[in-house]
Design a protein around this nucleic acid. Structure first.
Lengths: 115, 115
DNA sequence: CTCGTGTTTCGAAGTTTGTCTAAGTAGTAC
DNA sequence: GTACTACTTAGACAAACTTCGAAACACGAG
């Protein structure tokens, strides 16, 4: 296939990324570049009310609670999720700004003109 | 700000990711979760004609040629870029499909209604 | 206060990743 | 053919990451 000029849309493919910005984005990307964290993020975001209790998340994996806690900490440190203790349980929610920043990196600026 | 329901748009925050799909996406994400590879991808995509010679890329980093070659291989194995030898030089180009897939993961489905 | 449950922190394997040096392959020029 | 340039592969090593078990911390119930 030739398909020459479709790569011109995503911001990452429009101008070279500065070294500092690349390093900053890499931290964010590294946080989601893990199957467990990707699913955690997805489960938190899709949970009713936009919040999920750690107890719900732990049950969905074959991993120990400390491991889940570690992954949640990575996501929170990266700024992708926020968390708060409310009584007995700890609840986490997604930080839309951070997710949108990743989307803006790769998303085509113009939609591909659907039917 | 309370801003409760802004996280409902990105596909990743709409329904839980299946385990297999998460693993597949993690491979793609891990490929871009590195400052060097992020910049390589950006430099290739923004290069005139959509193609970049390895010689151009190598000069932009303080890394040895084998290291750059290694990163390019990771990107190509992940399907994010394609490459071809043409005479003396090797040229690389972006595979828009793969980049768009990442964008679709995080991008809000509806635009945030700008001013 | 003491107990039980939920969550995080600490310390320690085993594995993966990023980088290098050295050597190998592909092509041009003479 | 030989010499030179461009790029990749192979092997090795340090750093970082994932995971675990054990212990510590936080909170509500009795």
């Amino acid at each position: 296939m030739s398909a020459p000029a479709t790569a011109c849309c995503a911001p990452i493919a429009r101008e070279p990324l500065a070294e500092a910005e690349a390093a900053e984005l890499a931290v964010l990307l590294k946080a989601v570049a893990d199957p467990v964290r990707l699913r955690l993020l997805s489960m938190i975001g899709s949970h009713a009310g936009g919040e999920a209790c750690v107890c719900d998340l732990t049950d969905a994996f074959d991993l120990t609670a400390p491991t889940i806690s570690h992954h949640l900490k990575v996501l929170r440190t990266a700024g992708l999720i926020g968390g708060e203790r409310r009584g007995t349980w700890v609840y986490y929610w997604i930080v839309p700004e951070a997710v949108n920043r990743l989307g803006a990196l790769f998303a085509p600026l113009a939609e591909p003109a659907p039917a």
